[in-house]
Design a protein around this nucleic acid. Structure first.
Lengths: 220, 220
DNA sequence: GCGCTCCGTTCAGGTCGATGTCAGCTTGAG
DNA sequence: CTCAAGCTGACATCGACCTGAACGGAGCGC
């Protein structure tokens, strides 16, 4: 497996490179985004390890551009311990996973394994927007990192909304997602659940697009 | 890292091998203890994955001999779901950790990570959350350092919960762990044990996640 | 064997939270 | 302004869950 490491710190970069090499992967090490672009021009990588704080620009923008171009190469971002917003932004920008510095090298191996094992197109383990995160595997949700008490139906509605990031989701789409074919035709159940969700995650986190549906927003 | 997998079941063995390979480790797969000995004669391993039920002898004796020879290679044992006594015997014989079949491959990765990260010779002899501790080898439990009178079934339920730290464990998962294949289909046995455990360790140390399962908390 | 205790399991009845429905109100487009 | 779309508090219902009690089997001391 060929890995592109994008990291400006010499010490950390060398440690990561050696460890990933020891795991049996080929590693190219770029110290700047420009170098990273050059590497990508001449080689194809199975995985990118991307530090978000780099001397020549925001790693985040690099990642966004990558995804905007339709590139689905797995990306693991490396962020500073206190930059929680960076991690969230990174995931929203299309990162597959993240590691908080300083991290155990063994942890790096585990993340590399899980990210590359995950089939392309398979849903990630969590969905989030702003400070609200949905753990898909656990069927749980957190807000600002703390557990958010949420019922099964509420969770499903939130997942339906989150699955389209900040896009509009119609009421009928949500209904189809919540109920089997024996649809509930009448009543305003979805409206009720949206109201209940708003109470829990913030009233203005869910916008109403009249006649179209609902839309999540990053910040209320 | 080089791993020796000792497992006679073809299906399970192949799955484990592929998964550990995907994690970046080298894997040698022995179907019998004799093969395992041969492998160990020509290679050095960082980790052994040892099934205790093998056609040509007790894996337990293999493990005991290993330790008697002073070998401190980490060993994770794989045991059938209802062989609780095997697990305990395995830990007493010098295993570093164990996995109950069937297990999630992701769980395997996690255990491999933690076992190898852990300094050699510091096996996980106990699990704990808050002031409640389970001694795996002794099959006993303590609360606030004092012995907690507990029955076998209660212990098993608590172990099932603790094995996932503070994560949610479903009733069916607990059932699968307590009973062999001839599952008990009806009755609310698990609920009863949860109730009894609550009486002993504190009513609100075990949260009910409606429709999902149960979850331990550090503080009641 | 006999009586005893302990443990695992089952059962019945009670509790409580999740769900869906509705009525009356608010809001925004035209 | 008018009216449809949407919002929200209240509430009946239902099923998941809790719990005390009881039953029967296993083990043990005598």
């Amino acid at each position: 497996m060929r890995v592109l490491l994008i990291e400006d710190d010499t010490l950390l970069g060398a440690a990561v490179r050696d460890h990933v090499l020891a795991d049996g992967h080929a590693v190219d090490w770029a110290r700047r985004l420009q170098e990273a672009e050059d590497c990508r021009a001449v080689a194809t990588y199975s995985l990118l390890l991307l530090d978000l704080m780099l001397p020549d620009g925001r790693g985040l923008d690099f990642l966004r551009q990558l995804r905007a171009r339709g590139d689905i190469t797995p990306v693991i971002i490396l962020t500073a311990r206190d930059q929680l917003s960076d991690r969230i932004a990174g995931l929203n920008a299309g990162a597959d996973d993240y590691l908080v510095k300083p991290f155990e090298l063994a942890e790096l191996s585990a993340r590399i394994g899980s990210v590359t094992r995950r089939a392309v197109g398979q849903p990630a383990t969590s969905l989030s927007i702003g400070d609200v995160t949905l753990q898909l595997a656990e069927r749980s949700a957190t807000r600002k990192g703390r557990a958010l008490p949420i019922t099964a139906r509420e969770w499903a509605v939130l997942e339906a909304l989150l699955s389209r990031h900040a896009g509009v989701v119609s009421k009928s789409e949500i209904e189809e997602r919540l109920y089997a074919l024996d649809a509930e035709v009448e009543s305003n159940t979805i409206e009720v659940y949206v109201a209940r969700l708003r109470k829990k995650i913030g009233h203005d986190r869910i916008l109403t697009e009249r006649g179209l549906g609902y839309r999540l927003v990053r910040e209320g």
